[in-house]
Design a protein around this nucleic acid. Structure first.
Lengths: 193, 193
DNA sequence: GGCAAACTTGCCTGCTGGGCAAGTTTTGTA
DNA sequence: TACAAAACTTGCCCAGCAGGCAAGTTTGCC
């Protein structure tokens, strides 16, 4: 394994992370609309133009955390046996991811909660989830048998991701209930016949 | 019933429709990025500023058709008996809507197909579907019994809408297969246990 | 007819994405 | 170690865009 993927790559990752965190922090305490791309770039000690090299807009920067989490979930799914029921595989990956997140980073949920209510963000979150949908569908297609594999894989991927999204959204509105609880209840409600 | 909701309202509806159709037409033959809001407004004989009074962006104008279809589906759902299985109700409404659409307006699918491939549109389509999600969840909540009604209603609404979206998207990529077929296969694949 | 509310329009401002080219840093190779 | 190529950053630039405001116009209602 390449422990260090080269200086260049490490710097890029650091810049991306700095921009993401600056975006999140500024959005939280100035409101999503109150913050400009320029302010985010400044806070990350980078030019406005460089921001554009990393993200196509402030919302994408804000949701970069979600994107990373979803990619991690894809990994968790891929490394599971291919001879199991797809929904079982998905559920297990989701719960495992939730545990990982919950333990190391309670801050994540807190930040989320401070952003809730900004309605324009909701649609960008939906879009963020949609990005991995194709990739997940491709993975699932290899695990299905029978007719309509393509369509069924896409449906399964979409249903799963949208359920995760709803669970996270619902959880931000009920801070008292453990996230793991909400996720498993949501997945149970969506489980296909 | 108010047959004519007043001249003012009729004019507004006409303007909105004109803008929508102009947006769709121009987007189809100049590409989504190649068309400006100004061009759309011109084509609808209205000022650029007025466009902004109706839609918040060209994508919203393009997807106004979807929005209307989804609102129609909400109607179809609401007018069904409340003592039936929710998924049965949803499925029936979806199929009924598909029949309505398919018969009267084959043009709709044709236009869609000409827009496919523009990736930026996909996320806006997702967002368009998300708009009615809350409303549908509220309707479904009244039809559920047991624990976690709120969460389960949101999950059900999200799963159903995302399934419809996937069916439509998939259908644009397989023009040979009847839409009704795709929709019912997709709904069958997503049916909760 | 005539008034009030709603709608349209033009004007304006600050923000945005992204093309381009010059300057800087990292990488690979010799 | 030297140096050329590739990758990245930055400033400059431009056209497009959302939306506030105020003046003008149309519609609804008495």
């Amino acid at each position: 394994m390449d422990e260090t993927p080269g200086l260049r790559e490490r710097k890029k990752a650091a810049t991306r992370l700095a921009l993401h965190e600056a975006a999140l922090r500024l959005a939280i305490d100035q409101g999503v609309d109150g913050v400009t791309v320029e302010a985010i770039a400044d806070a990350a000690n980078v030019s406005r133009r460089t921001f554009s090299n990393y993200f196509s807009g402030k919302e994408e920067a804000i949701f970069h955390g979600d994107t990373m989490r979803l990619r991690r979930m894809l990994e968790l799914i891929r490394e599971q046996p291919t001879d199991e029921q797809p929904w079982t595989v998905l559920t297990r990956a989701a719960l495992r991811l939730t545990e990982e997140t919950d333990l190391g980073n309670v801050e994540w949920l807190i930040r989320r909660r401070q952003l809730r209510g900004h309605p324009s963000l909701a649609s960008h979150q939906v879009a963020a989830y949609a990005v991995v949908e194709r990739e997940l569908a491709a993975e699932l297609a290899g695990r299905l048998r029978g007719d309509d594999v393509g369509l069924r894989a896409r449906v399964l991927a979409a249903v799963f991701l949208t359920t995760m999204r709803v669970a996270v959204q619902d959880s931000t509105e009920h801070p008292d209930r453990p996230l793991l609880d909400v996720v498993s209840a949501a997945l149970a409600a969506a489980a296909p016949a």
